[in-house]
Design a protein around this nucleic acid. Structure first.
Lengths: 217, 217
DNA sequence: CCGTGTATGTTAAAAAATTCACTATGCAGC
DNA sequence: GCTGCATAGTGAATTTTTTAACATACACGG
């Protein structure tokens, strides 16, 4: 009796579901067939209720008294997140980070296919990385439309992120993942995610300092 | 009258403070001297009260009726986060991503100095990247202790993340930033942050799908 | 030196997210 | 087919986080 729900789904839930998928995949490889919310929770470092609640947004995937069938649950989450398809992606900014991402095979493994790479630097244009030839950013908007690209990745230095975003917006992109440590402004209907690792370095640094301060009390 | 507070500081606050610092730096470069919480909030995409609240955890940095002095505020936040010093960092896993991070100059600019890089792959050991020679992971624990390293970065494939973490733990590290898409288990006293960009790709993909579904209603 | 305007710091209210506690349900064994 | 057991699903309670509202303090002009 899978009642479709229209509750707003918390951003944090989505991010946790992604973690669940990852852990479920590991289990599947290890041949584990069934898992309880309690065990999965332990592995993911969250509360068991949290898992059950997160899943409840999308349906009932478990069997009471038994747990969740690993493969089935993984598929169910993937489907819920819209990952049971491939997504065309472009990358703007072929610097160190951009190159690393181009060569990063986890994208493709998860259904994100980088179909083009762009850069404004003439030295990088035409260079081939991971079977892909860098093009001039001015060609971006047309390319993305022609190739039906929905997601753009921005691994530029911070000062060039907004420009990259503008090209992507012009190209009719629907979502952006910004690796540059600077906020970008976009129209409402474009979904933006920030991958800001300096930010995470800060957090760790802060936590360490905090612990030391606490220790002195 | 700067009353020191012992309230627990939300993780989200820390992450926002990092964003504020970034935006304040941009402003400083542009020669902007004073900023109101309202304008800063707009730039960072948050609520003005949020900013004032976040700052209140650490002290009073503004001038009523005026706003915040950009440079002063930036320094105050940096100090609050423990960023007014340098941190020795090591990197475990010299793959595509690891190399890119080694070459990424934003780390150093923010006070995170990568003092050593390790890999278990003999082909990568001895190779020099960004002025740093990769060493065998077995040497890690001693090195980190000798060099007074506090933070470890893990840009390995997921299946090797835990092993990398174990070496770091053995090396007496205090914090870990894990770029691998897999959870790692560590002692309580070690602070771990996850930089999981596949996760962010998932979020964007989900948001796009969600919007399309909503649009059909 | 006092009044006025403005934007902070702070407290209270609202909203959101997490956790708890309980209910319901499917399975295994008898 | 019934009984006991284990664990999912769920509504309520709690906690946390965010937002709003307002009192306070500082700068500036007259």
């Amino acid at each position: 009796m899978q009642q479709i729900k229209f509750e707003r789904i918390p951003r944090a839930t989505i991010s946790r579901l992604a973690v669940y998928v990852q852990e479920l995949e590991v289990m599947e490889q290890q041949g584990i067939r069934v898992i309880s919310s309690e065990k999965l929770a332990h592995l993911c470092g969250v509360n068991p209720s949290q898992i059950r609640k997160d899943l409840a947004y999308f349906g009932e995937f478990g069997v009471r008294g038994v747990g969740y069938y690993v493969h089935e649950l993984r598929e169910a989450i993937r489907q819920s997140l819209g990952l049971d398809r491939t997504w065309n992606v472009v990358l703007v900014g072929v610097g160190n980070l951009g190159r690393a991402l181009l060569r990063h095979n986890l994208f493709r493994k998860r259904g994100f296919v980088i179909v083009a790479a762009f850069d404004c630097d003439p030295f990088k244009i035409g260079e081939e990385i991971a079977g892909l030839e860098g093009s001039c950013t001015s060609k971006l908007p047309k390319s993305t439309r022609d190739m039906n690209v929905e997601i753009g990745i921005i691994p530029t230095p911070p000062e060039r992120a907004q420009r990259a975003a503008n090209y992507l917006i012009e190209g009719g992109i629907k979502g952006i993942v910004n690796f540059a440590p600077s906020r970008i402004s976009t129209p409402e209907n474009i979904s933006v995610e920030y991958v800001d690792f300096i930010n995470h370095m800060f957090s760790v640094a802060f936590n360490i300092t905090q612990k030391q301060v606490r220790g002195l009390l």
